[in-house]
Structures are given as C-alpha cells and as structure tokens.
Design a protein around this nucleic acid. Structure first.
Lengths: 230, 230
DNA sequence: ATAATAGTGTCTGTGAGACATTATACC
DNA sequence: GGTATAATGTCTCACAGACACTATTAT
C-alpha cells in the first residue's frame, strides 16, 4: 500500500457555514455562541470538524441540519477555504467555508447541539465580535451572495415554494440594501426566460391588489444580469 | 493550552495549481508527469503538500515558482477545495486548488523539481488522462477563467506589460474559443474606464497598420460585462 | 370613495452587434 | 499600386431607468 512521505503535515479539517436568510425584511446570518474554549461564549459561525470518510459537502449538510434543526433543502455552495497557520490557537485547521441560503425559517432555531443560536441582522454584525477569522468569512459569504443575485436566479433560494414578484424584489432589496423600481423589476423578472414560472393563484390578505404567485423556473443564470449599481 | 478533541480526524493538506497561459494562439495548461506512486508517470496538475506554518496562498506561490521555474508575478486566486474521502488512495487529503494566469512563458519549463512538465492545449486534454480528480479541477479552473473574462479585466493577466488591443482580443478568442468582432471589441475595451491605458508607442513589424500599445488599467471589474454568448 | 399595492404602457438614453469606411503600415 | 490590419463611423435593435397610468383589493 502506498503511503505519504512521513514528513507530511497533518491538520484538522473543519466546515464553517454562512447561513443567510431573510427575516422581517432584513438579511440575517445564523450565529452560535461557543460553549468551549477557545473563544468561549463568543459568537461564531456554525460548523464543525469533518469526520472520517465524510465528504466536505456532506459534512456541511450535516452541520446545517444539526444547527438549524431543520431538514430542508438548502441551497449550498462552497465559498472558500481558510487556512492561515495561526487561525486556530489549538493547531493547524483548514476550514472549508460554505454558503447556505434559506427561506425565512419558522423557529429562531435553538440548535440540536445545545448551542445558543441566533439570527443576527447583517447590519448589526459589528456589535457581534466573532471568533477566529469568522468575521472575514461572513463578509466573503455576504459579498458572494450579493454578487450572485446579479447574474443568477439565486434570489429564489430565499423564497418559499410559491412567492410573489414583490416578495422576490424584497429579497434583492434586503440583500443589496437598495431600493428597486417595482415596475422595472417586474418587467425584468417576468421577461427573463426561466427565472420564474407563473402560477394560477394569487396572494390574498394583504393591502392593495393581490399579487400573482410564482414558483422558481428552470434557469440558473441571468443574461443580461440585474444591475445593483443604482 | 487548549487542544482539539482527541477524536478529530487529521488529514494532509495539498495545493494544486491550474496554470493557464496562451501560447501560439491557444489556451494551454501546465501539466507534470508524476514520478511517484500512485499514478506513477500519469499526467497531473503541479502542486504539493502544504508545509508546517505555511499559509495556503504562500504554498501555492511556492509551488508555482518551483514548477514553472519563473519568479514572476502571476495572477493567483483560490479556486475550490476538493476533499472527497477517496480522492487519494494514500489517505485523506484536502486539496486546495488555485487558478494562476500567466502571459506566454518563454521556456517550456523543465520544472525545478525534476518533473517532466509540459504545456498542453486545453483542446487536447482528453488525450491526457489525469491523476486523482485533476480532470475535474482543470475543468473548474478553465470555466472560472472563462466566466471571469466576462465581468472582470482579468484578460490582461494573460498579457505582458505592454500589449495591443488585437492581442487582448486574441486572449478572449483563445479562452472562449470564439471569434469577436474587432471593431466592436476595440470600442468596448477602450471605452470601459480603467480597463486599459493608452501608451504613446506602437507595435511595429507586423503586417498591416501598426497597433497602438496599451498597459493594464486600474479597474478590476467590467460593467457592463463582455458577452460570450455570440 | 380613498388608500394601497400590483401590474402595464411609454419615452428615452446607452450600448451591443453588424458592417461600411478610413488610416497606416509592408510588399 | 495592392494587401493586410488598425481604428473610426453609422445604423439598428434590445433593454434599463424613469415614470405615468390602469387594475384590483381592503377599509
């Protein structure tokens, strides 16, 4: 059996999750309070060590289910890997960060692993000093999400099965922190082939004219993109 | 001193490089022939293990210098991390892949590490079965480069200090495998603020009217992007 | 009726694609 | 001169931004 050269460095492998969702009209990220040293009681991203024989994405999905307590189909993509030698005082750790997007989750999620978990508005992240290099990871995750809304149909990952165009516009507005023209947004979304599929039902109960319901379409890319430079 | 939980899995950490360049009007990737088991004598991406106390990007730059034998300033960005449990028969390895772009390199690079190294046209990759999951990594790297040419000024990373607009167009055409209208490309590039900076000299010696020389500008993003859907 | 929100129509400016035309080199 | 390539000009169509207008609900 072939072996590694004996001097090869070994390190621990972790996955960390930037889980974004929209609650009460604002972009939130899930944070957990550490119950172990180092950084005891500090806020951190949910995550954990990769297990023997477990793939990276599988580890990420396991942590996702554990920490949110929800067995749903999240959108999940690998973000980046952080491996500075000193990023963890316990020793060398490679952290493979994942970005997860979720529609507004029902419970505030008291995690299965008995952490204190909380949704924190991304505008209030400065008030939550994060452990390790997690502040950087969160910034990278948010920026990735913001960028991808431009040229992909990813905004639908923040919506439930059925949603209205104004709800979808709200996703863009929350994530980008801007306001979009309702009329132009409507035209753009409905005329981008495969972005959304029209349904026969309407959203009732709100003020004003009821909005037609849509579900996500088959397209994943958006060409031409939606501009956030306004 | 704080320690990891004892049962935490340890793995080796590697960096693998997708080094792209343009030679003789075609996109090439640097491959090395393995001189060790496993996959002895098979083609593979240049790379190696991360050393103790060495950051990921620093490891990538070290391998880049070793394998190309050139101490130049490459564009380098992290691509993705590959960590399937069985991807290396010797044991668990996390491979952090990097994408490097280089202007046409003078020598075919007989690597410092005594590998046989070769530039391979990306159109001839099928004829070169790659070790590990490197075929997937190369595909991901090429696709990343193709996508980034659309909305960034990265094409200049394939050019030397001074270049002409037709040369830059050649970069797009090689990487995308398409043809672009010279007149429209010229207009787009010269009117995108910060893409290129006009110089006072001209490229002489070729056929036809000499082309003005440019150098890369300060902008990194391109808005609106250049479309490859034609 | 009034307010509020959903959805449609219209005008205008920007920019891409297509392609004609002019400019400047080598032979 | 002829040929090749660089650079400019022009026409048209698609589409985004701005915003007026119509449609449909709740109160």
């Amino acid at each position: 059996m072939v072996k590694f050269p004996t001097q090869v460095m070994r390190c621990a492998a972790a996955v960390d999750l930037v889980i974004l969702t929209i609650r009460e009209g604002a972009l939130h990220v899930l944070l957990v309070q550490r119950k172990e040293a180092p950084f005891l009681r500090k806020w951190a991203l949910p995550g954990g060590f990769v297990r023997e024989g477990e793939g990276l994405e599988r580890a990420a999905r396991r942590e996702l289910a554990e920490e949110t307590g929800i067995e749903a189909e999240f959108y999940l993509e690998q973000l980046q890997t952080y491996g500075e030698p000193k990023r963890d005082p316990r020793g060398r750790v490679l952290s493979v960060a994942y970005l997860a997007l979720a529609p507004g989750l029902p419970t505030p999620t008291a995690g299965g692993d008995a952490h204190a978990a909380a949704w924190v508005m991304v505008t209030e992240l400065e008030a939550h000093p994060l452990a390790f290099d997690h502040a950087q990871i969160v910034r990278d995750g948010i920026e990735r999400a913001r960028a991808k809304l431009e040229y992909t149909t990813l905004a639908t990952a923040f919506c439930h099965d059925r949603f209205t165009i104004p709800e979808l516009r709200g996703v863009y507005e929350c994530v980008w922190g801007t306001e979009l023209d309702p009329a132009n947004f409507y035209r753009k979304v409905t005329r981008s082939p495969g972005f959304v599929e029209e349904l026969d039902s309407y959203q009732r109960g709100g003020e004003g004219r009821p909005a037609r319901l849509y579900r996500k379409g088959a397209a994943s890319h958006l060409n031409p993109p939606i501009n956030r430079t306004v």
